[in-house]
Nucleic acid binder design. Structure first.
Length: 775
DNA sequence: TGCCCTCGGGG
DNA sequence: GTGTACGAGGGCA
């Protein structure tokens, strides 16, 4: 059998026999839309050791676990060194050897997940051709299974993935699961099914359903944080196996945060929302409204037990709707497509690209190069969680406080990658660690690190980046020349994926623990970058322009054409081109009119007038959790005035709002603070927590409270410690006096960030008079 | 100012 | 699974 496959994920098992029974299982989707398991039995785990003492080799060669020891000559941190490749029987023994041997000699290649090791070593791409013997009567849930003989190349393709989205309604009071609804789709809806009844049978039916349907992807809203852990716990209680993996293994918790279902991918729609959208609130309801303009069914989930008693049918309908909605969200955000695109660029299984760890993206490209060039792959060295090794970041210019007219914003195209290419930065070109090649002294970073120039030695890192950058330009050109909109869309997604990979180089190389970097490299990159942006600022100033702000790779300056957008666009483009160098390319990104900051770094707002009308708000928005609506409302009103370039109006709006709050002249609903409350005993200092106080007072009034429920309250006296709050109960009159002063103060604090520049700080806003009048 | 604690999503 | 990683915001010292 021969098949073209897109790789989804992989695992290994030891089912067959005791020794030598390690087999890899790769799960994928064929070009003709079949799910497939690829079994590989002939790959052994290994690691490498650098210049080991003879005694050590003697020692481990007698080890029953060790299968083979062979010679290798590798470039390791600046030297050609004699190394040994130690092949062993079991992948999970590698960490053991790492620990045992690491104080006697340097260990290489010992922290690469086994499946990835295999695909790197065999240069397997995200899509590949596999030849082998079909396994008839296999026990996998996939359509096909094959014993791999040979791997080859094939064109990229994008199979339609089968997605099962599900939702579970469960009692808050006890452990009972009321209903699980599943929604299966490929391109269109295939099946909707709800599971009810006794929990044991319910879960068993659900498991059977999953294995029968055999979805590639399992999704839902916050399933990693709620549905899956709850399901797991209940299944354990009832002694039901959640054997929903494609090889019939049990679903397991991978980290604290997510789960693993072998052969299937878990794509939590909430996580997708977090990374793809910028929302203040991320409830499914809000997201649905934002994406589709529709509200979901009105069932109060914090009161699910009541709802279930009163109207089962409605709860079931609600559950089905939510299951479908989560799938819709995933689809709308193009999550799977993006993961496949990223897989295409990074040569990784789709699963690795759903919530990619940037270091894995880079590893995939870099390690393949290292194998090719006989370079030793060092290990990541996370030394504790210390961030003392944090590399100094970008340069941030203290913004010029006030309202500014017509501000072109220039930014460097892929700044960090460009610096790396320009200065040939790589572990393999770092001259200070290398004694095989004399240094010519051409490239020295501002922190004193020395790099070989390109003609002396080409770095892998700049090479990879150059390739990516070229590919991106090519892809963009293809996009622009495509006649078919579908084709154009494909190329656009691909270039976006390339950008993601290129940018992830920065994060990884700015850290000091990534395997292919070190402090000198990280610091050199950012130092070169700071130098470049400062040069731009200087050049602008020398030309007579006034720079008002700059952050890392962008510069904001004043256009002399305060009221002429056309001229400003022209000027911006002209200036950008003039200052650009061969590698460091500046572009006119957008134009703000007006631009405002109160003088604090990373806090500014602006109205974007080019290339599209937009609003730009950085660092000012109050986000979620214990904020209350009045804060947002007041902020919005003041924003509006500032963007209308009306200073006085902004101050007046702020004063008026605060005055109203002080006088109790505001809708009480806008003061409600609402947070969920755990079991009281789970808090370190429960008596200090406002939510505990509110919950207790609710119970006293005879209302139900179950741990985990959301509670709402209004602050009535903040001068006490802890502050005094009273619960807000819907449909009941609030018979306490809010602490108006407290609310006015919090609003003033928020607003003062904006009005400070106009001479109005928090206290001034509270008093209603500015400093000048005061003194 | 800096440390410690908590939340979010879900029911 | 050849592991180790959330990030923002408020309260309190």
């Amino acid at each position: 059998m021969e098949k073209n496959v897109r790789l989804l994920n992989g695992t290994y098992t030891t089912k067959e026999g005791k020794n030598n029974g390690v087999k890899l299982e790769l799960f994928g989707k064929t070009e003709d839309g079949k799910s497939i398991t690829i079994v590989e039995k002939n790959f052994d785990p290994y690691f490498k050791i650098v210049e080991p003492p003879k005694s050590l080799i003697n020692n481990i060669s007698r080890d029953g676990e060790v299968k083979n020891i062979s010679d290798e000559t590798l470039w390791v941190t600046g030297k050609i060194r004699e190394c040994k490749r130690v092949t062993i029987k079991h992948p999970w023994k590698v960490p053991e050897y790492k620990k045992r041997l690491s104080d006697r000699c340097q260990i290489l290649d010992a922290d690469i997940p086994f499946v990835l090791r295999f695909i790197y070593d065999n240069n397997i791409d995200s899509c590949f051709k596999v030849k082998g013997k079909e396994i008839k009567n296999h026990d996998y849930t996939t359509d096909l299974a094959i014993e791999a003989k040979e791997f080859g190349e094939c064109e990229n393709f994008f199979p339609t993935l089968k997605v099962m989205s599900f939702d579970m309604e469960k009692s808050i009071e006890n452990d009972e699961i009321y209903v699980i609804s599943a929604h299966v789709r490929e391109e269109e809806t295939l099946k909707v099914k709800s599971f009810k009844g006794k929990d044991k049978g319910l879960i068993e039916d659900f498991v059977e359903f999953i294995n029968d349907e055999d979805p590639d992807v399992i999704t839902g809203y916050n399933i990693n944080g709620y549905d899956l852990p709850e399901l797991e716990e209940r299944a354990e209680q009832l002694n039901v196996s959640l054997n929903i993996c494609r090889n019939h293994d049990t679903m397991r918790q991978r980290n604290k945060r997510d789960y693993q279902i072998k052969g299937r991918m878990i794509a939590d729609a909430w996580w997708a929302v977090k990374s793809e959208m910028d929302l203040k609130r991320e409830t499914l309801n809000h997201v649905a409204k934002e994406l589709f303009g529709k509200e979901k069914l009105d069932v109060d989930p914090s009161n699910i037990d009541q709802e279930w008693k009163e109207n089962r049918e409605r709860v079931i309908e609600y559950c089905e709707k939510d299951a479908e909605l989560a799938g819709d969200v995933l689809e709308e955000l193009g999550v799977l497509q993006k993961a496949m695109d990223l897989g295409t660029v990074s040569m990784l299984p789709v699963d690795e690209c759903l919530n990619p760890r940037t270091s894995v993206l880079i590893d995939s490209l870099f390690i393949r190069e290292a194998i090719d060039k006989d370079i030793g792959v060092l290990q990541n060295n996370y030394q504790g969680g210390e961030d003392s090794d944090q590399v100094k970041g970008g340069f941030v210019y203290q913004p010029d406080p006030g309202i500014h007219k017509m501000i072109p914003i220039l930014d460097f195209k892929s700044m960090y990658p460009s610096e790396i290419m320009k200065n040939n930065i790589c572990l393999t070109t770092l001259a200070s660690i290398d004694d095989t090649l004399p240094y010519e002294g051409k490239i020295e970073s501002p922190v004193g690190a020395k790099f070989y120039s390109k003609d002396q030695r080409e770095g892998i890192l700049p090479d990879l980046l150059e390739e990516l950058m070229e590919k991106r330009d090519e892809t963009k050109a293809k996009r622009d020349n495509a006649d078919d909109p579908k084709e154009a869309d494909y190329y656009d997604r691909l270039q976006a994926a390339i950008k993601v990979v290129m940018n992830s180089f920065y994060g990884v190389f700015a850290s000091s623990f990534y395997r292919f970097t070190n402090k000198d490299i990280g610091e050199s990159i950012t130092a070169f970058a700071r130098e470049s942006i400062k040069e731009v600022i200087k050049e602008l100033e020398d030309e007579g322009y006034e720079v008002v702000y700059s952050d890392t790779d962008s510069v904001f300056f004043k256009s002399p054409h305060e009221n002429d957008l056309e001229k400003t666009i022209e000027l911006g483009k002209e200036v950008a081109e003039k200052i650009s160098g061969e590698y460091m390319i500046l572009e006119l990104e957008k134009i703000a009119d007006p631009f405002y900051s109160h003088g604090k770094k990373k806090r500014y707002i602006g109205r974007i007038v080019w290339p599209e009308e937009d609003r730009m708000v950085k660092g000012y928005e109050t986000r979620r959790s214990d904020s209350f609506e009045a804060q947002n409302e007041a902020m919005k009103q003041v924003f509006q005035e500032v963007l209308n370039e009306n200073q006085q109006g902004a101050v007046d709006a702020a004063r008026e709002y605060i005055e109203n709050v002080k006088n109790g002249n505001i809708d009480l609903k806008k003061l409600i603070i609402s947070i969920s409350c755990k079991k009281f005993s789970e808090y370190k200092k429960p008596e200090q927590m406002a939510q505990v106080q509110a919950a207790k007072k609710m119970m006293k009034k005879g209302y139900e409270f179950t741990p985990g429920q959301r509670v709402s309250w209004i602050v009535t006296n903040s001068t006490k410690t802890p502050q005094e709050v009273e619960p807000w109960i819907e449909y009941e009159e609030f018979e306490h006096e809010p602490d108006w002063e407290y609310y006015a103060n919090r609003i003033a604090k928020t607003l003062a960030r904006l009005t400070k520049t106009f001479g109005w700080d928090q206290d001034a806003l509270m008093m209603g008079t500015d400093q000048q009048t005061l003194f």
